[in-house]
Design a protein around this nucleic acid. Structure first.
Lengths: 229, 229
DNA sequence: GTCTATAGTCGGATAGAC
DNA sequence: GTCTATCCGACTATAGAC
């Protein structure tokens, strides 16, 4: 460089050089941590995948663990973002005391199908799943943040809809347990994906198969939540 | 290989000195691999927890990875053993063409409740879960064996019962998908245990709470599989 | 079969030039 | 902010005595 460029100081949305480095590392981190797990992923892999120098990991994130935290946060935000529309609609439905059971059920269908699509067949789901599963199996300090910021709100939304349809309080054990079981029907297709694929002799869950899975789950949910008395 | 040195073949139940060492390492392995994950578990931890010398791990198992395989196998066997009674009963019910829907449903209840108890509140479930979850999230060569020897048979039993109640072929996609979703309702209470516990403000899943969870799941299953036409 | 001692490798983090 | 070079600790596996 001929003459020292002024460090571009941030006017509003101006991007710094380091910001891109940070983002590249986070993106690479989702991929590498997801593919190998936290311990098996090395800082050398992470740096190479991001196309940055090894030493910038401690510089920008304080170390491997700091990068991992940023990755978990990013994963949570990305998932929530994709569910945002369904979530808003659900909150609106819950607040509307005049919503009919059919409307509430249709809203729940939307949430479940959206959740299923992201989890089961999206690239984000594929990459994020091992990270989230690890935090569930062996929670680290990143789990608290993930739960408070993201997991809880999805769980609550489902619980609200279930509670409404079952005529229970959204704080009741019955509603929360039932909501958790319903969520389980979806997540099992990601968390026990290998088992499902072998049993079905499918090679993968493409979009069409994902819809079929969601159809079955939604049919089950209708059976569970439709009052037969 | 020229010829592999034969290990001393056990005459009946004669116990060798090394057999106890092997078993101690496997038991310690379930605990340590379960608690820390494969990579974070070190041979030093494993040896110390087993109360044996570090060098016997390569000697008896060929290395850390060999011990891990033995641990996965042991975990699968122990779970299956506890489910053996329910499994036999289920196979008997399925073979009996005169079994009534109520009988089939009752058999399924037994399988689900047995599975739930093991998975959710037993010590075995606690220790085994991270290991099985890891194999689902990031399958290693141990997964093939785990699936073929153990997971498949449980899945098939549930599928047979579901298929009978839905009037479907046990090979049909519909039956397998529905069975998988039902299994999901159980495993989610282990795999997303932390999330459930926080939502419920429970401190743990003791026996009483486990029964409550199983009650909800079984109620859901009845709704799903009871024909309302 | 089990022990001690150690080899050989690779990990994350850092110092200091630019 | 980014680079190269390097440190230091921790890991698995092995050699060889017993």
């Amino acid at each position: 460089m001929a003459h020292t460029p002024l460090k571009r100081r941030s006017r509003a949305a101006s991007t710094h050089v380091g910001d891109e480095t940070r983002q590249r590392l986070i993106d690479a981190g989702v991929e590498i941590f997801g593919q190998y797990g936290y311990e098996a992923a090395t800082t050398r892999m992470l740096a190479e995948a991001a196309g940055v120098n090894l030493a910038v990991i401690p510089y920008h994130f304080g170390g491997k663990e700091g990068l991992y935290h940023a990755v978990v946060k990013s994963v949570g935000e990305n998932i929530i973002e994709l569910l945002d529309e369904e979530k808003s609609k659900a909150i609106e439905t819950v607040r509307n005391e005049n919503a009919t059971p059919d409307e509430v059920l249709a809203t729940l269908d939307g949430v479940i199908r959206g959740f299923g699509r992201i989890l089961i067949s999206s690239d984000l789901g594929r990459r994020a799943a091992p990270i989230i599963m690890r935090e569930q199996a062996l929670p680290t300090t990143a789990f608290d943040q993930l739960y408070e910021d993201h997991l809880r709100s999805i769980h609550e939304v489902v619980t609200f809809l279930v509670a409404r349809l079952k005529g229970l309080s959204p704080d009741s054990e019955g509603a929360i347990l039932c909501a958790h079981a319903i969520i389980g029907q979806v997540v099992v297709f990601r968390m026990m994906r290998e088992t499902a694929i072998r049993r079905l002799a499918w090679d993968t869950f493409d979009n069409q198969k994902t819809e079929k899975i969601c159809d079955v789950i939604i049919e089950n949910i209708h059976s569970i939540l439709t009052n037969k008395d």
